[in-house]
Design a protein around this nucleic acid. Structure first.
Lengths: 182, 182
DNA sequence: CGCCACATGTAAAAAGTTACATGATTAG
DNA sequence: CTAATCATGTAACTTTTTACATGTGGCG
C-alpha cells in the first residue's frame, strides 16, 4: 500500500524520501501513515524493481539528498492499481474500541477519563481538518491548474475525515453520558 | 493487540483457538480482526509466557481440541493493559481513501462504480449491525447476569459501528453526487 | 461425489514499528 | 547552550497476511 502512495506522489513530481515523508504527514497520513524508515526502505525496493530511479544530489553543508523519479513502469503500476476496483470494505483496527469492549471490569472513572481525553483529541483533529478545508478554499485562486482536478479528490478525502471525527465525537459524548449514569 | 483480545475473551471462559476465532469473527472483528494462523501462534506464545495454560482434549472422530485457560498472570496482564489510558487517537488505515486521493487521473465512471459498490457493501454492514443491535435487545431477558455489565460496553462499540457506517454511507452518497457533476 | 464444518497447525513472506546512528546548521 | 531541522539510513523486532497441509463426518 505505501508503495502506491509513494508512486502517487512521485507521479506529481520527483521527490526525496524526506520530502515524501513531509508530504504524507500533512495529507494521506490522516488515513494512511508511514514511518520514515519504511519510506526509505520501500523507495530502495522500488528502485530495484524499476518503478523509480534515483539520483544522489550532494548537499552543501547539509546531508546528501536522493531524489526519486517515477519511471514509465512505475506509472504503469500505479495506473494498474488504480484501475482495479476494491471489492471489500477496508478493515478497521481501532484500539480504543477493543479497550472499551473489555472495559466492564475497569473502574468507570478511569474509562471516563480515557474517553474524555479521546474526545478532546478528536475535537482537535476535527478543528485541524476544518482549518485545512478553509485553507483549501482560500488558496483556491493561486492554485496550480494541473492539480485542479486532483484537488477535488483530496477535498473528498478531507470531507470523510471531518465526517469521521464528527461521528466519533458525537459517539464519545453519547458514550460518556451513558457510562456516567451506568 | 490480538494478545489482549484473546485474554479478554479467555477471561470470560476457557476456549480453544477455533472458538476464539469464531467469537472474534462475530464481535471484535468489526474493529479488530485476526486470521486463525495468528490466533493459534499467539496462543502458543502466551502459553510459553505463562499467560494461559492449555489442555489437549481428544476428539472422538473429530480432531483433538486444545482448550486454553487464562492464568492469574494472564488476568494481571489484561488488567494492567486495561488500566492504562490511551493518550493517542487510533491511527486509521483506509485503502479506499488512498485510492480516492489519487483518483484524479482515473476514468470517473470507474471511480463511480467503485464508490457505488462500496456504498452497497457499507449499507449491508449497517444492516448487519442493526440486526445485531435488535438481537441484543430481544435477548436481553435471557441474558447471563454476570455479563450484564459487559453487554453495555459491547453495545457502545456496536453503536460506534453504526455511526461509522452511517457517516461512511452519507459521505459516499455525497461524493458520488459530486463526482457525477464534476 | 464434492463441499462444508470441524480443528489444528507450520512456513514464509510482507508490512509495519522501534531503536540506533550520524552530523551540520540555525533559531531561541 | 540546547533543541530543532535537515537528510539519510540500518537493524532488530513485532505483527500480520498468505499459503500450505491434514483428515473425518455429514449433507445434498
Amino acid at each position: 500500500m505505501i508503495k502506491f502512495i509513494l508512486l502517487g506522489f512521485l507521479n506529481y513530481q520527483p521527490m526525496t524520501g524526506y520530502d515524501l515523508k513531509q508530504t504524507i504527514d500533512e495529507s494521506t497520513a490522516h488515513f494512511w501513515h508511514a514511518h520514515h524508515s519504511q519510506i526509505y526502505t520501500t523507495l530502495r525496493q522500488m528502485d530495484q524493481e524499476g518503478l523509480v530511479t534515483s539520483v544522489q544530489v550532494p548537499g552543501e553543508g547539509l546531508p546528501d539528498r536522493r531524489i526519486y523519479t517515477i519511471t514509465p513502469a512505475g506509472k504503469q503500476a500505479l495506473q494498474t492499481w488504480l484501475n482495479q476496483t476494491q471489492t471489500e470494505v477496508s478493515p478497521i483496527k481501532e484500539e480504543l474500541l477493543v479497550r472499551l469492549f473489555f472495559s466492564a471490569q475497569r473502574d468507570p472513572q478511569q474509562v471516563l477519563t480515557e474517553l474524555r481525553l479521546q474526545c478532546e483529541l478528536h475535537r482537535e483533529k476535527l478543528a485541524a481538518y476544518r482549518r485545512i478545508a478553509e485553507e483549501m478554499v482560500n488558496h483556491h485562486a493561486q492554485a496550480i491548474p494541473s492539480l485542479q482536478r486532483d484537488k477535488h479528490f483530496w477535498r473528498l478525502t478531507l470531507e470523510m475525515g471531518m465526517r469521521y471525527e464528527e461521528a466519533y465525537i458525537a459517539w464519545l459524548e453519547d458514550s460518556i453520558r451513558k457510562i456516567e449514569v451506568l
